[in-house]
Amino acid sequence: MHGEEAQWADWMRAANAGGSEAYRRLLAALAPFLRRLAAQGFARAGLGTGDVEDVVQETLLAIHLKRQTWDADQLFTPWVRAIARNKLIDNLRRRGNRTELPIEDYANILPAEAAGEELSAREADRLLSILGGRQQEIVRAICVEDASIREAAGRFGISEGATRVALHRGLSALAAAYRSVEQ
């Protein structure tokens, strides 16, 4: 754990200094940690681990959008844990609300169950489909179809700068969409 803390904090400091490869490594290293935390949380709540990846993705998104709230002189792991706990609670609360919703409302946008694709989440796909036009297309191209910003810009015939802005707004809108489900 101490080794992880030092490595993660190093990567985050490197990321904040402009290193995007360090940032990618950090998020990739955090994903299994978050998966474990979410699975533990689901187990405590008496739930199966089927939707753990939803929490992992929402937490990664929150870590990304709130990365300016980590101080370099602060421990990194407690910061990650605090965000993960917060997102787990949001998810469990939402789950409580969702059981009361008629499934018909979602039936036509729920993707078919992809067996064996355990590192994929369905909630993000569902939320993406309620985002608006261009932002949704760009987030979908980059997050789902694994396009680069340049490829997405080419595909939609807009500048890379505009694509970057749309991606960032789309990610923020995706985070907001999680909240709107809860309300």
Binding site: L60, C143, V144, D146, S148
Partner: peptide, 17 residues
């Protein structure tokens, strides 16, 4: 959405900002 792809997108967004 695959988590790896999301991470790729977040890293690209980080590279932009």
């Amino acid at each position: 959405m695959r988590t790896d792809d999301l991470i790729g997108a977040l890293a690209q967004d980080h590279a932009a900002h």
